[in-house]
Nucleic acid binder design. Sequence first.
RNA 1: GCCGGGAUGGCGAAACAGGCAGACGCACCGGACUCAAAAUCCGGCGGUAGCGAUACCGUGAGGGUUCGACUCCCUCUCCCGGCACCA
Length: 862
Amino acid sequence: MAAHYDHEAIETKWQKFWIENKTFKAEIDHDKPKYYVLDMFPYPSGDGLHVGHPEGYTATDILARYKRMRGFNVLHPMGWDAFGLPAERHAVRTGEHPAIITNRNCDTFRKQIQRLGLSYDWDREINTTDPGYYKWTQWIFSVLFERGLAYEVEAPVNWCPALNTVLANEEVKDGKYVETGDPVEKRAMRQWMLKITEYAERLLADLDKLDWPEGIKAMQREWIGRSEGADVEFAVAGSGEKFTVFTTRPDTLFGATYCVLAPEHPLTLRITTDEQRAAVEAYIKTAERKSAQDRMKEEVTKTGVFTGAYAVNPVNNKEIPIWIADYVLAEYGYGAIMAVPAHDARDYEFAKTFSLPIIEVISRSSGDSIINRDCEAQSSLSGAYCPQNCEEVWTGDGVLVNSQILDGLNVADAKKKITAWLEERGLGKGTVNYRLRDWLFSRQRYWGEPFPLLRGEDGVVRVVPMKDLPVLLPELDDYRPTDDGMPPLARATEWVNTTDPETGKPAARETNTMPQWAGSCWYFLRFCDPRNDNEAFSKEAENYWMPVDLYVGGAEHAVLHLLYSRFWHKVLYDAGHVHTDEFAMKLFNQGMILAYSYQDKQGKYHYPHEVERDGDVWKLKATGEVVNAQIEKMSKSRYNVVNPDDVVREYGADSMRLYEMFMGPLDRDKPWTEEGVQGVHRFLRRVWALFVTEDGGIHSRIVESGGDETMTRELHKTIKAVTNDLENMSFNTAIARMMEFVNAAMKAAAVNKADMEQFTLLLSPFAPHIAEELWEKMGHDTTLAYAPWPEYDEARLVENTIEIPVQVLGKLRGRIVVPADADQAAILEAAKADPKVLPHIEGKTVVKEIYIPGKMVNLVVK
RNA sequence: GCCGGGAUGGCGAAACAGGCAGACGCACCGGACUCAAAAUCCGGCGGUAGCGAUACCGUGAGGGUUCGACUCCCUCUCCCGGCACCA
């Protein structure tokens, strides 16, 4: 090996060694505690790896290596979430089979990842598009189906014309597909749904036992959106009709002054009076045309129309008008509400707009009424006021008024009392509502898992028996939807039209495919037993490896992958296939890697190599024009993407790994700088120079015995700090501590070989290639991957003398150096006698002396 | 509006349990080596005043608790992320 730090040679050598020796192969070993550390596996895009990927991968790799050295049996796998739209689009364009494109991309990703020296067990590599994998995805679907959790329904769904497919609620925001921004519209279609709502309560409650970031848990709670309240039945006056509303404020029932139905409510046209019919029909038409985006924009002004009908308030038999308005959502609750304008901001605004009466039923503790009684205007509704008389809305707690049996109670008690009252009379009941809706699980695409379903001539749907799985994707020569709008699989007529093996009768296959989330919902289970042909995973493997101990990935999957996976896992738990009802106990979100981008006055971006720094401004090299330098998310369009291959070529994988960890705390967003990479690269060169001479031998400063004692103490301090930092995932500070050690060691005349070996082990999880090389140079003929992690000796940390800062009135005035075993009295004496301290206490009385052992002295003087 | 997370030198950051603010690195400045440059090594580097010892100021703003606050409490500002007519 060359004398200088030849990262290229060292890294390729050890990467080859690890692969050939299967150094990181994991096998069940009941004598060792297991540790399952998992990365969110990537979608292998055609663009290859991005510097953002290795950030999380490096963090988990460091922990995997650390845990192995601590005696854990580590499961650290990698695979590909390879179904998905980009490959399918490419296939439509070029006619090339998506599987070929996918495999090519996987090869690129694998090569790039292997070049980073990540210690994955490559024998466990999985690919969700592999029939040997999706066979089991189909099996899990059949488990869901057989447990009654999969159903077909004709309902308004999110249809994305640009993608020619439907989408789940979780994939749509503000009327757009979250990934691409393409508009989404409502369209009635027959689709497969999964009953995730049946698990809403458990998905919510079990968040409490997970060590996940608060933000993610909060987002899931919000998405599930549990709310407690009551269903209340309202009769429509003068007709046999009635409707139910859901309210979280049954306590305000006496304040209800009107009701609102969603335009889509089945009752709207039936109860509308002839005089109002034209207006109502027109309103419903407009509402239908409005997209979700339009609704968002009109947030400020509320619209609606009176039906002419009246509802009977069950608590007091008052007749109140029924309106229809699009501020009431058809999808939530019953698509109908009772409106209490005095105590609900939305109802208040609507009442103001349409001059609907207001009744105050909650009196604020301050005693100020929200109603201005000096105003003359009176409402037609008895006991109510015109909206002009009401100056504000009150949604907080208070004392019930104008509410007969509830008067004098607070909000919480009133809720209980009225709910019981309604239940006794059969007029309503306490209920819980969720915002979460069932998961729309079918897509009109080719490149996804086929459903293992057969529809008989009788219309009955049966699941394909286990022995006939996988249902393979048929070969097609055109991946577009059919001309009559059927999914691409409908083109495979021979595949679609088959025979039901049980009945022997003709049957048709489902032509929708599963969404991309399906494969990632359970991949962590397959990693436990990835080559099992007889079952998705063996009980033994699942029992041993699950649950995931640490799961690292980006925060963008907060309510998609992470919620869907939790749901599937609970179903598998209920079905007895897994032994825990959550799949990952600890979750960590890495931050984003940002980069400088350079934009000229016209807004055009320039590549970093096209600009140079001149004092405190950046200029175009070609023209000298000053450009604006800013920190932004990396993207091709901003010309600021850093390619990991370039970094590895120039500085090596160890530098790349070390830099990504040294940039700052893992969970924070931070900007990439080339100078920063050079900084850690210099550190590794210093490490090399510390150990190795110009001719490639071990440096003479490394001695068998008699080395610098203070360096031994430094080593023990470093072991303690690095170990602690690793446990806290504080990689940046761990690296800083190792830099301090190296800086000190460079200055020492001689250091003990044993100490330097220990240091090499400390460095190895972070920069494994250089560490292996140094380990070998020091005479070891086996990998250090399983060498015991260094232990520190508390006794070795003790210094002979300690320096203690001395404050007077909390201000630092001096420092004293005392023997480590000096007692308090001696230290205080020394503090008061210190020449720097003396001027600040002379002529004053010391009224209090504070000594924090080993830390600090503070003298309080008057 | 609500929820989650932030704000510390020129920059990325550190201070784990209330005890020396700025470890470590980058950038920058000075020096050594060199014909020269690069690389490397040594030194400096929060602000103000001062030749200096040193003094004062300083962790988004204001208040509080404390011998002592980046850290705890209250109020507020700004930034990032999420949700938002969900009754």
